[in-house]
């Protein structure tokens, strides 16, 4: 806490607000992650942390280092961009894996394969 004393009051309030917003959203997302009943519903919970949860913490960090350093600092933005680009890939792959496993077990609550005909066609082409 060496640099915090010479921070102007407005910057301290802005940093605190964004910090609490971001970590609060991440926490609420994780509460939902433990409380929601099925996997496909739980899939939505971490997106709270990846959208405005990350956004809030990144904004707080950007404001803090810009004010303390006396020059604009943007490099935290890379974390935000990186998370935004990678989350769809991980969630999409996980959802497909879960769907594949549920269909293989014959779970009646998941919809039938919309790609069944193409998969079958691809298998036909192979043989």
């Amino acid at each position: 806490m060496s640099h915090a004393a010479d921070l102007p009051l407005w910057a301290a309030i802005a940093v605190s607000a964004f910090l609490l917003l971001g970590s609060g959203l991440a926490l609420i997302g994780m509460i939902g992650f433990t409380r929601l009943p099925s996997f496909y519903q739980r899939l939505h919970a971490p997106t709270l942390g990846t959208s405005w949860g990350t956004g809030g913490v990144v904004m707080a960090s950007m404001i803090y280092f810009s004010v303390v350093g006396g020059r604009p600092v943007f490099h935290e933005l890379l974390v935000g961009i990186f998370v935004t680009v990678t989350t769809p890939v991980t969630l999409m792959l996980l959802a497909q894996a879960a769907l594949h496993r549920d269909r293989a077990e014959g779970d009646p609550t998941v919809p039938g394969s919309i790609a069944a005909d193409t998969e079958a066609a691809r298998d036909d082409a192979k043989t």
Partner: peptide
């Protein structure tokens, strides 16, 4: 004043993220 605000919000954020973890 600003150091106190920042100290408490940082502590709160760390506690909340630890609970989330």
């Amino acid at each position: 004043m600003s150091a106190t605000i920042l100290y408490w919000s940082l502590t709160c954020a760390q506690v909340m993220l630890s609970i989330a973890m």
